[in-house]
Computed example of a mutant assay.
Amino acid sequence: MTSAKIAIRSAWVEDAPAIASIYAHHVLNGTASFDTVPRTEAETAERISWISGQGWPFVVAELDGKVLGYAYATQFRDRPAYAATCENSIYLHPEWIGQGIGRLLLTELIDRARECGFKQMIAVVGGGEPASVGLHQKLGFEHAGRMKSVGHKFGRWLDTVYMQLPLSGVS
């Protein structure tokens, strides 16, 4: 990891261009997202506002005013019984992958999700990306299941890996 001071802070609507750019890279070049068309800056700004407006965490890693990556937590499913379970999303600028930024973001996201009352966190790892699985394992997530060949992108069928982390005494 870089020795420079990386700040983890709440996302602002003004971060939408940087966040949309990071997400677009992953949509167009990777399998972590099953989207095939990147979100616009306006759609990204709406997402930031909506998630923050729910009282849920949306954080960015920043260095010298540049967004290096972001992470957020939303309710896992929209049905009322899922209200205490969240799903995380985390994406890094391609130049910062493998530098420890993901761990910083996910650690902060876990803390903030716990503070806002979530009891369980679910990671839905598109394409079963090994780096994402490894990051989640390092932070205590356990394998909770695999759905085989549920996404089709770049001419191939992809699995989705589910991982789970209890955020409180609930197991």
Rank of each mutant, 00 (worst) to 15 (best):
I51G: 04
P17F: 10
R156G: 14
R39V: 10
F118A: 06
T44P: 11
G65P: 01
S132R: 06
T2N: 14
T160M: 13
T2H: 14
Q54L: 12
F141R: 00
R47T: 09
T40R: 05
N29E: 14
M121C: 05
A42N: 11
G151F: 05
F154W: 07
G98V: 12
S33D: 04
F154T: 07
G140V: 00
G69R: 02
G98I: 04
R9Y: 05
S168F: 04
V59E: 01
S89H: 03
M147Q: 08
G53R: 05
T160A: 15
M147S: 03
V37H: 13
L63F: 05
S149Q: 15
V133K: 03
A144V: 00
A20G: 11
R146F: 01
F76Y: 15
R79F: 12
I51A: 02
R103K: 15
G30W: 04
M163P: 12
S49A: 15
Q75V: 14
V125A: 01
D64K: 12
K153R: 13
I122R: 03
L135S: 01
H136P: 07
A24F: 12
V59S: 01
R103W: 01
F58Q: 01
I51M: 03
I22F: 08
S149F: 05
T107N: 06
V170Y: 14
A123P: 10
F34V: 10
L109G: 04
A20M: 09
E62Y: 03
P57N: 03
V67R: 01
Q54E: 13
T2P: 14
H93A: 13
E62S: 09
Q164S: 14
A73C: 15
H143T: 00
N29V: 10
L167P: 08
V27F: 08
F58E: 02
W56K: 03
F76T: 00
C116V: 15
A123Y: 06
S149Y: 09
S89W: 06
S171D: 12
G69H: 00
A83S: 15
R156D: 09
E115V: 11
G128W: 06
S168I: 06
A131M: 07
Y72A: 09
